[in-house]
Nucleic acid binder design. Sequence first.
DNA 1: AGTTGATTGTATGTTGCCGTACAGTATGTG
DNA 2: CACATACTGTACGGCAACATACAATCAACT
Lengths: 154, 154
Amino acid sequence: MSSLTNNELDAPPWLRVESTLMATARLVREAFDTRLAPLELNLTQASLLGYVAEFGATTQTRLADHLGIGRASIGSVIDRLSDRGLVERQPDPHDRRVWRVEITAAGRALAGEVADVDEVLRAELRHGIGREERQALSWVLTRLQQNLQSAIRS
Amino acid sequence: MSSLTNNELDAPPWLRVESTLMATARLVREAFDTRLAPLELNLTQASLLGYVAEFGATTQTRLADHLGIGRASIGSVIDRLSDRGLVERQPDPHDRRVWRVEITAAGRALAGEVADVDEVLRAELRHGIGREERQALSWVLTRLQQNLQSAIRS
DNA sequence: AGTTGATTGTATGTTGCCGTACAGTATGTG
DNA sequence: CACATACTGTACGGCAACATACAATCAACT
């Protein structure tokens, strides 16, 4: 694992940005999953919980879009959270096709712990990285996403 | 998918770097997979082929480390490339446990096409992103990886 | 030499996500 | 109203990667 990183890093940087990016993403998931393990949540579940806690009940499709996974996948994520009583599917009064996914009291309590974990970890991740560097990272990633989207649609 | 991007982007940038990063990584894989589809390769297979083409025969474990996937996974990747006659497993004269994974003539030819695809796509991805910005991205990602590694080991 | 511990590649089962197809429902159009 | 079209959530099968356990082999130490 560390050998991976070393191999990646001694390559010409931009030449292998895609690899570095993928490796970093993997590490992000791993780090969050590790820290969230005591809560018995993975990153996806925690993100969903956090989103519902912050923005209130929404449909599954909106949740899927936000988390960047498919409508099919979000279903099973909600299933598991629902089994643990952290969220609830409530019928939408205006559209009988959709469920409104609402957080429960237990879910809200756990979401608070998730937020704590999140804050601590992000503070660690910021270490040694200045504010303007973080903004630059964000900007470049955004631009890169646009280019990727263009590349995919062609 | 575009709604994902929009949702991500209107969030506070650094607050959601992890999501942006993950989404970008997914797009990277998607873009490469799309462009590599005519060659009937995915990103992992192409990376392996490219690595062997450039650095010569190596063991499976080294390949796994380089690509950042597990020893178990690399086996099936090699299986498929081997079935198509693009690489070959050759016994190592000094260590009967290991295979030396060598590229074939057909594999080398295909690796050339992969390199072309790679170069074209990377040029597109650089669009609108300056040299120093790319270097900054690389630097921040590297630093972030270090922080992530520290976070995971604790 | 013999024994112990590390390493390589493989087998097996699990996870998380995808793509496709589908039934149910809503919405717009004639 | 009838009909076509679009959208929501689910079911199903597939894929790529993981973690774990294993046999074969090497290396080191006594």
